[in-house]
Simulated assay, not measured.
Amino acid sequence: MAYADISIASVPDERRDAYRAFCEKAGSYILSLGALEVADYWGDDIPDGEVTSLPMAVKAAPGETVVASRILWPDKATRDAGWEKMMSGGGEGMGDMPFDGRRMIFGGFTELVTVSA
């Protein structure tokens, strides 16, 4: 059963190109660990909230944009093995994050329903 890692972060607007380069390098590296697909998204319609919101969740500052990433794995076992390799190597195949990783939120999800065209 498919497994996904989802993350949300906040990137300074002036680091958009650096973020794109990071995503390309990290994505290739993660695919080499067994992922099926890596997708990264630059937010352009992220509303502020009064009680909760994506910008609040990552403590986005003025001049920062909320970004989202999805890593699709064939199953949780492949994901766990991939993450173990990534962490044992210090993530060196990914390069330096052009954002404050302490404000990133992330988690792993078991596929429940997929509807496709």
Rank of each mutant, 00 (worst) to 15 (best):
I105M: 08
W73V: 01
G90H: 02
R79T: 09
A18D: 15
T52H: 04
E14D: 15
A77L: 10
A60T: 06
I6W: 01
M1V: 05
Y19E: 09
S28T: 12
L31C: 10
T110W: 08
A9E: 06
D17R: 09
T52F: 12
F22N: 08
S53T: 05
M97H: 02
F109V: 12
S10D: 07
D96H: 04
A77G: 08
D100M: 10
Y3T: 00
D48P: 00
M104F: 03
L72N: 02
G90I: 05
M94K: 04
I105K: 12
L54C: 02
E37N: 08
E50K: 12
I71K: 01
G89W: 02
R102L: 09
K85D: 11
R15M: 14
M86R: 04
V67D: 07
E24D: 14
G101A: 15
D13T: 15
K25P: 03
S28L: 13
G89M: 06
K59T: 05
L72H: 00
A35Q: 02
Y29D: 08
W42Q: 03
G63S: 03
S28P: 01
D13G: 14
G63W: 05
K59I: 01
R79Q: 15
D80Q: 07
D96R: 10
I105W: 02
A39E: 10
D13R: 14
M97I: 07
